[in-house]
């Protein structure tokens, strides 16, 4: 099964109401934030709250992500100690700039895993790139650890560093988004886009989602439940895409049943990326409720 990460909803780590209900809005992932949305005075309380939530709550199929503070701070190191033990699905590092950042955290997590008798490497991470240096090093970052399942772009700091601001067209982010995507694809991991902060501007939001989908991102970070449905709608495959995917999967099954190593459709050979895309289209279609497994048997 292909894991979908169309939407990752940000949830303030110090707000119990939000932590309790975040998974009910239908996003693929929820990200509990210990970093920017938590004031310096409340770092300890957010850490206790998210830790106890992960230990207690059943978030079902929703992927849980925790954004910790930077490891250049004591907060970040304390967060890591707590979160490797609380075991969300993914730990997200903010402001990654070099592969060494990833290697360091990989080692720190490994130490903790050993202490608690967890298999070394079982904790997964996601890196957020939020600076020009991080973007320039994107491929090295993306390949620095086997733990890494995704890289994400954080635009607010990035555009500030670039001496510009965000525009509706997103021209200022084009190079960074493209570079990050290529790094992710080359490394075989997911690429996630940044947040859109004006929750009242639906049109602007949808334009941006269409853009990043077209670029090739796996999904977008969202800051409000109302943004989730809009992303999912845009990521819903067309009927034509679904029909194609069904045919590709049919060809795979046929090849398997014949014991053939070569998959062919309409007399043409089908290779890896097309197969992957077909599975992904069907997952997207299933998640969007426009396709059910049984239809394959038609």
């Amino acid at each position: 099964m292909v894991k979908l990460r169309r939407t990752m909803m940000y949830v303030t780590g110090n707000n119990p109401a939000n932590i309790m209900e975040a998974h009910l809005y239908g996003s693929d992932s929820i990200m509990f934030d210990l970093e920017d949305s938590v004031s310096l005075k409340e770092k300890d309380s957010a850490r206790f709250l998210v830790y106890n939530a992960l230990k207690t709550m059943d978030y079902g199929n929703v992927e849980t992500v925790v954004r910790i503070n930077g490891l250049d701070t004591q907060f970040g190191r304390d967060d890591l100690e707590a979160m490797v033990r609380a075991q969300p699905d993914i730990i997200r590092l903010p402001k990654t700039e070099t592969k060494q950042d990833i290697i360091d955290v990989d080692n720190m997590i490994g130490e903790i895993e050993k202490q608690i008798g967890l298999e070394v490497g079982s904790t997964k991470i996601m890196a957020a790139v939020e600076s020009p240096l991080g973007v320039m090093n994107a491929y090295e970052i993306a390949t620095a650890s086997k733990r890494l399942v995704a890289i994400a772009i954080g635009a607010e700091d990035f555009v500030t560093n670039m001496k510009t601001t965000r525009s509706p067209e997103g021209i200022e982010l084009l190079a960074a988004r493209s570079n990050l995507l290529m790094a992710a694809r080359a490394a075989g991991i997911y690429a996630l886009d940044t947040v859109y902060t004006n929750i009242k501007d639906d049109d602007g939001f949808m334009d941006e989602v269409k853009l990043i989908k077209q670029l090739g991102f796996d999904g977008k970070s969202v800051i409000h439940p109302r943004q989730i449905g809009m992303v999912h709608k845009i990521y819903t495959p067309t009927e034509k895409e679904i029909r194609n995917a069904v045919r590709v999967v049919g060809a795979i099954k046929e090849a398997e049943s014949k014991g053939s190593g070569v998959i062919a459709l309409d007399g043409k050979m089908i290779d890896g990326p097309v197969v992957d895309r077909a599975y992904r289209v069907l997952e997207l279609a299933k998640a969007s409720g426009v396709y059910k497994e049984e239809e394959q048997n038609d």
Partner: peptide
């Protein structure tokens, strides 16, 4: 962030 449509 989710739940906050006002800013303090």
């Amino acid at each position: 962030m989710f739940g906050q449509n006002v800013e303090i």
